[in-house]
Simulated assay, not measured.
Amino acid sequence: MRKASALTRFVACGIAVGVLLSGCGQSPERPAASPAQAAEQEPGQSEAGGADPATLPAGSYVRNLENGRDEVVVPDIGHTALLIGDSQSEPYDGWPRLGLEAVGYKVHFCGLGGTGFVAGNGKTGNYIEALLRGDWKLPYGTPPLIVIQGGGNDAGQGATDAQIVANADRLIAALRQRYPDTPMAMIGTLARGTNYGGGRRSQVDALLGTVAARHGLPFIGVGDWLTKYDLAKNLADAVHMNAAGRKSLGVLLEGRLRALHLEAEAAP
């Protein structure tokens, strides 16, 4: 019923169809285009013309005329979680992805390493800027779950509490406007904990917990996981995990998602 509802909204306001322009926001099955490839592509009308966008090939885009942005056709959107995040989520074996996949979702990632609620990395803006200016593309249709992860780069770049809260509020509002029927959850900032040198990262994790609570969103705080679960030994650098660490964190996240009853519905 959610797919039908989304399609009805698009048909009511008109649909434009074309080829994908941007590499950000790809589903894992489809590698991101290089900046050069993206720059060379031009918008064009699909051969499908006025066909049902749900029948278009993965990677095609649909112009959402309600907001003027292009959205990506994603395979099996009904079982695909939208994950917004930074370099913790970006790798195909990133622990947020592993946790979501373990509870039954495919994953469509929108984000980039070095970004956050306030932080940009020079290639793209922060989360809300990237969305509004089209640096990455949201999926067409209605995903069953949206997960927002991040905060580490905001901590590292000195973003204030007020800046983080303001942009998190804007992002949540924009996503709720686009996907009013989709549950949303937040994952905080991976750190060592306030008593073990977590510093600003642990503070931002706690701050994001207050944002999630105010919006009524489930929150998975990870601001002490490195020490709580003895995983600091699996750090590949100051903030990123090695493969074994990513796997361990994925298992922990799976347990939290199940405890919050955020598992994917079984495919028919």
Rank of each mutant, 00 (worst) to 15 (best):
L226M: 05
A51Q: 13
Q149D: 14
L171S: 02
L260H: 10
L217C: 08
D76L: 02
I15T: 07
R170K: 14
K137A: 13
I15L: 12
C24Y: 15
D224S: 14
G122C: 06
A162W: 02
L171F: 02
L190K: 00
T115A: 00
G120S: 15
A166F: 00
I164W: 00
R97D: 00
G150H: 05
R192L: 07
I164A: 01
G245P: 01
P31E: 15
G68H: 09
V19N: 08
T55A: 15
A119E: 11
I146C: 10
P31G: 12
G158T: 01
T189V: 11
K123S: 14
A212P: 10
C110P: 04
A267S: 10
K123V: 09
E71V: 15
R192W: 03
N195R: 12
S27V: 15
A39N: 09
L138H: 09
A159M: 05
K228V: 07
A58H: 11
A38L: 06
A51W: 07
K233I: 14
A168R: 01
N67L: 05
D181L: 12
A232N: 06
L253P: 03
E129H: 10
A58I: 10
L56P: 04
G193R: 12
L132F: 03
E265K: 08
G23C: 09
R97A: 04
K233N: 01
L21Y: 03
K233M: 05
A81Q: 10
L65Q: 12
P43I: 12
A4Y: 09
G113T: 07
G49H: 10
G68T: 08
N195W: 06
G198R: 07
D93Y: 09
V72D: 14
D237T: 10
A6E: 10
S34G: 11
Y140W: 13
H79T: 10
G216W: 06
F10K: 06
I84P: 00
G50Y: 04
R97M: 05
G141V: 03
P57R: 13
N67R: 12
G152M: 04
A12P: 02
Y92E: 15
Q177N: 11
K3V: 08
S27A: 13
G50V: 14
V239P: 00
A185K: 00
G193S: 08
E40W: 12
L175R: 05
G25P: 08
L145A: 07
T124I: 11
M184R: 00
S248N: 13
L208A: 03
G221H: 11
V11D: 14
F10G: 00
R246W: 00
M186C: 12
D52T: 06
A54H: 05
L207I: 13
N195F: 12
L138S: 07
L83Q: 07
G94Y: 01
G199A: 10
G221R: 11
A267W: 08
A39W: 09
A119H: 05
A244C: 06
P35N: 12
V103Q: 09
G209V: 01
P31M: 13
